[in-house]
Design a protein around this nucleic acid. Structure first.
Lengths: 203, 203
DNA sequence: GTCTATAGAAGGATAGAC
DNA sequence: GTCTATCCTTCTATAGAC
């Protein structure tokens, strides 16, 4: 059947995505992917040849998905401050939908830098920063932010939203003792982080 | 020989620490640990019975080492602002000496929350925050920081120093395109992060 | 395209000599 | 305490029937 083909491949792909994100490349098992997909091991190899191929396909899809979702940040016609608010709202919302992604991505990059490097080489960070810098030159001047401190600022912003998810295992335990739910904490964080950063750069 | 005993066990332990931090629990190989230690596989099991035992011993040692190093932050007689400066200087220096620790710890906690939970249960975060809060009540009042926003603030501080190491694989690539070395970036960050946070809370 | 069966390699763990 | 040899399980990957 023509449609069936596509269906099976997709089922495998989705099952593999779950398994890899859950257990990482090293911990993932082909048998478990097959079980999740409701098929047998041999079919995995029929469609994707090796575990490595399957992993690469999954990782590339995830990377593309993230890029696509956040490209709007760089062409929205917001003020600098509103862009910061927009970013934290959107980014934390995205991570609330995909809470395991940070841990997965950070770990796989550390485990196998070579594999990831070719995926990342297509992303021109220098250009992103430059574009961003040019878009908000007046604002940044007002805030005393030089081109040299842009990396420090951008990485601080990323850290504020990504880190709680990456360190969720510790943070959830720490919050619990104060009677705070992780989800409530992250909901509150959308605003806290934005105002924190804006306040930090407003000398 | 009496002293030889201790020596071998230590060699194994150090080799295991390197291997686990490098490759994680799932990726680590008993054979590779034996090779690093310059002995054979059987001896690993003679001293530590199983891979799980060995991993637990290593992880516990690392956890203890970290706690020990940062307990001074909570009893030093600094002002709130100086404590922030002290923390970033000390914490980032520690991570410069142990750059792979963040990725390792975050990943293992995500992979196996149960295993880690008993180690963390001995750490009373609520108490740490309360102590910290009481120590600096006047400062915090001045800064309009309520007890409720303490978790947001503390986790932001941790994020600022830990995240760059956890995401080093991406950040190093991004910085390179701007001609910045990771080590220089982190050296600069000791001061940037401190002033960033202090500025953020000084409304 | 999908399945069962199995090859073949790798890895954790143990037995037993020294 | 330390080594060699080996067991046994797990896992990726393939062969071959349908």
């Amino acid at each position: 059947m023509a449609g069936n083909n596509k269906l099976t491949e997709e089922k495998i792909f989705e099952a593999a995505t779950e398994e890899f994100v859950d257990k990482g490349m090293d911990g993932a098992r082909m048998q478990d992917i097959a079980t999740r997909a409701g098929i047998n091991k041999a079919l995995l190899h029929y469609y994707f040849r090796t575990k490595d191929h399957l992993f690469d396909a999954v990782f590339e899809m995830i990377a593309r998905k993230i890029m696509k979702r956040f490209s709007p940040v760089f062409d929205e016609n917001f003020s600098f401050e509103d862009k910061i608010r927009f970013f934290f709202r959107e980014h934390i919302s995205f991570l609330q939908e995909n809470p395991k992604l940070p841990g997965f991505i950070l770990n796989e990059i550390n485990r196998n830098p070579a594999r990831i490097k070719k995926l990342l080489s297509s992303v021109d960070f220098e250009n992103i920063w430059n574009t961003f810098y040019k878009q908000h030159k007046e604002d940044l001047l007002k805030y005393n932010i030089s081109k040299e401190t842009m990396p420090q600022l951008m990485i601080s912003i990323a850290a504020m939203s990504v880190f709680p998810f990456a360190a969720r295992g510790i943070i959830e335990g720490a919050l619990m003792k104060s009677g705070i739910e992780f989800n409530d904490f992250m909901e509150e964080r959308k605003k806290f982080a934005a105002e924190f950063v804006i306040s930090a750069i407003s000398k």
